[in-house]
């Protein structure tokens, strides 16, 4: 049995067992490795993707639940780093090891889709479930504000 859904705007068909977490379908079957495995228990946010625009932990999202839905991964932001979040992330040199950053970016993208001028408290609210063991939080916060400003102007 296969499951049909959209990934980054394109039709996708996955053949994995339907209880397989979306994370492993994206990474191992579809070959999009930007989305990372950190904890397998929705504790770190490294696997954050969007399902119908909502940020979800793909390690806890069974393949069956995305049938017919739109899934977006970090690769959907842009390939050429032109998305305001990517521009801001580069400007602030946010990543250190970089492993959590896809999840950080997707949580930030979901926040800015709803709120183009988030306060510190709103950023904390949206981002505190994304762990960064390198402690890039100060720069993540600064980059989100910069990206928001860019998006307000655009």
């Amino acid at each position: 049995m296969s499951v049909d859904f959209q990934i980054n705007g394109k039709a996708a068909k996955a053949n994995a067992e339907t209880d397989t977490p979306l994370l492993w379908v994206i990474r191992d079957e579809l070959g999009l490795t930007g989305t990372k495995f950190g904890c397998g228990a929705a504790l770190c946010g490294a696997c954050t993707v969007h399902v119908d625009g909502q940020p979800v932990r793909s390690c806890q999202t069974p393949l069956s639940s995305v049938s017919g839905k739109k899934v977006a991964t970090v690769e959907s932001l842009s390939k050429d780093n032109s998305h305001p979040l990517q521009v801001a992330w580069i400007k602030h040199d946010v990543p250190q090891c970089g492993y959590c950053q896809s999840g950080q970016l997707m949580s930030a993208a979901a926040l800015l889709a709803k709120n183009k001028n988030p306060s510190d408290a709103e950023i904390d609210q949206a981002m505190s479930a994304n762990l960064c063991r390198c402690g890039t939080y100060t720069r993540v916060r600064a980059a989100i504000k910069d990206a928001a400003a860019m998006m307000r102007k655009a």
Binding site: K79, N81, Q86, I90, V94, P95
Partner: peptide, 10 residues
């Protein structure tokens, strides 16, 4: 940093 661009697009 030379590694940042690759770390923001997967």
């Amino acid at each position: 940093r030379v590694d940042t661009p690759a770390k923001v697009n997967g």
